[in-house]
Simulated assay, not measured.
Amino acid sequence: MDGNKHAVYYECSDKAKLISAPTEDLRKWLDENPENYKQILPYAGRHLRLLENFVSDITFADISTRLLNLLPRNIIEESQNLKLNNDLPDKEITNLIGSTRALVNRHLQELKENGSIKIFRKKMEIKDLKTIAS
């Protein structure tokens, strides 16, 4: 859909309705309506890849790895502060990496103790990006 070939297999465990069309018919319709093509397929492809990456991370990466991958993706380079609202509170981090608040807190405290991050007044500052990103 986004120009990159990728073999993926999905299974739906809930009752669902599916709309399908032969790929050639869909491509023809999109060729005849290029304003739709330029918006729909790249958008859908990006979101499918994000979902696939999330599921892969949840399945194969431990909590520490998921946390260490999340923090560098969400910082403002100039200030080394997290760029999401409220500096990614623990609850939001737990939702983003699929963990519990207690485990995220434990890992954040380890990062704080080794000097990688600084936490103050519900704000977080990345002190050592190289340690986190490696």
Rank of each mutant, 00 (worst) to 15 (best):
D62C: 03
P22V: 00
Y43H: 11
L30V: 02
E78M: 09
I93L: 02
R46M: 09
A61T: 03
E52D: 09
L96D: 00
Q39F: 14
K38R: 14
C12S: 11
N53T: 15
H47Y: 14
I97E: 01
I93A: 02
L30K: 03
I58R: 12
E32P: 01
N53K: 13
H47K: 13
I75D: 04
S64V: 11
I97Y: 01
N95C: 03
R27S: 09
P42V: 08
L82G: 03
N85V: 13
E52I: 06
I63C: 07
H47W: 15
A16S: 15
N86C: 03
P34D: 03
W29D: 05
N4R: 00
S99H: 05
L51H: 15
L84I: 14
K15E: 07
N53F: 12
F54P: 01
Q80F: 08
E32D: 12
K17L: 15
L67P: 01
K28Q: 13
K17R: 07
S99G: 10
T59W: 08
I76R: 11
V55K: 14
N81V: 02
E77V: 05
D31N: 15
G98R: 01
Y9V: 08
D25W: 04
N95H: 06
K17H: 08
K28N: 10
S64D: 14
K5H: 09
N36V: 08
L84N: 11
